[in-house]
Design a protein around this nucleic acid. Structure first.
Lengths: 223, 223
DNA sequence: CTATACTGTTACCTTACGGTTACCTATGCC
DNA sequence: GGCATAGGTAACCGTAAGGTAACAGTATAG
């Protein structure tokens, strides 16, 4: 996720950028209207955060300029709590308005809301060869056929996908799937066999490979 | 446009209702959690405005209760400006948070934003195979026949539609439909059987599938 | 007040999940 | 060669999770 921040208070800006980075939000930064126009030419953002008072103009007119050319959701920042400013901002297409001082976590949350509004998060999909896994809906297909897995097998597959393309060690799997049980090697072997047989049938190439002494991994083919 | 306002301060509430009426926003009003639950049973709204402090509970837990069964965007009101409250609210699915005192025009603008921007045209219709559900009128048809559901069954179906095509876990369902009861597995089983039997008859393909140990989901097909 | 619907409860059935075991192959080591 | 280790496969089977039907108590409507 990447946003554009336009803010002339450099202290506030650097704090914000640092905090947002921790939250996984990348920031393009501009301190003036001119810079903002220049830097934003190259890029579309998930959201735009605009200070209203800027040295060479104001955020409101920038928003007015942009409201027909750009489609990003805009959040205004301002030291002024005046109702007029807020209403004007909203009438220019603002989707949110935050009065300084504000808490950085709140800014982060509101940015994420705006960003999600525009692109509802695509369904988490995992693809490998002809295998398709929808991690939310828990639908698995390979080629045309639909694969139904038992709870344990699903759990294992999810682990493997999470670590893809790295192998997952036997111990990790055992501890994850049978917590507080004593590790029975046979249960593990059965589980692997069953998952493998469900994932691949007939002449399909195998996807679940075991690397001796290291564990198992999801791969298109052996190395 | 119609919203639900839950607020125990009757002076504030009447002012708000008057002002929102001028703005063309119709308001259903409740002053307690109990009232809110009762009045909202019959209706879906374009947005919900929730005060956090209420005489018989708080808005946060109400939002938590609703977050899986209702799809309306929620705006919180609170006299408290504490960051924790805000973050908690947002984590419960709030889309906006306004601190008292606030200006009525700002409230109106933010409500309109939620109602319009969040669901451009909220799909009040749900279709799956030959099943048609009108979420507003609560009319369900499959092919030619009209399906009538009991309250519990409707509640469950609404949950499933909201999460479609993802499964909903047994625990989630039990907590939503029988809050504060101890989870009786049999009630759950009966409910599923009853809904399933109402949704599908004779030679129709099944729509309500259960994924063992994981929950149930609405699907076209899955075996 | 009666009839109907809704929901909680029980009893019984069916299924497939997962643990167990037995036997197999491959590789490595003395 | 003999043996050990690591993994693979297939079959067996007890059991728990889920499905269904019937019944009863309570609410609801007419």
């Amino acid at each position: 996720m990447i946003i554009l921040l336009v803010e002339d208070d450099t202290v506030l800006a650097t704090h914000s950028i640092d905090f947002l980075a921790q939250e996984g939000i990348e920031v393009d930064y501009a301190s003036t209207v001119r810079q903002a126009k220049a830097i934003s030419k190259q890029q579309t953002y998930d959201a735009i955060v605009l200070d209203i008072n800027l040295p060479d103009g104001d955020g409101l007119s920038l928003a007015k300029l942009w409201q027909n050319q750009r489609q990003e959701p805009i959040l205004f920042l301002s030291a002024r709590d005046a109702l007029d400013d807020k209403l004007k901002a909203f009438s220019l297409g603002a989707l949110d308005y935050l009065t300084k001082p504000f808490a950085l976590p709140e800014l982060a949350v509101r940015i994420k809301l705006l960003a999600n509004k525009n692109n509802p998060q695509p369904t988490k999909q995992f693809n490998l060869d002809s295998l398709q896994v929808d991690l939310d809906a828990r639908i698995i297909t390979r080629g045309e056929r639909i694969i139904v897995l038992s709870p344990q097998q699903w759990q294992l597959l999810a682990m493997l996908i999470k670590h893809y393309p790295n192998p997952v060690s036997k111990d990790t799997i055992i501890n994850e799937i049978w917590p507080q049980q004593d590790s029975n090697n046979n249960m593990y072997k059965s589980l692997i066999t069953r998952l493998r047989s469900n994932l691949t049938q007939a002449d399909e190439p195998p996807l679940l490979h075991t690397l001796k002494k290291q564990g198992v991994a999801l791969r298109k083919q052996h190395d």
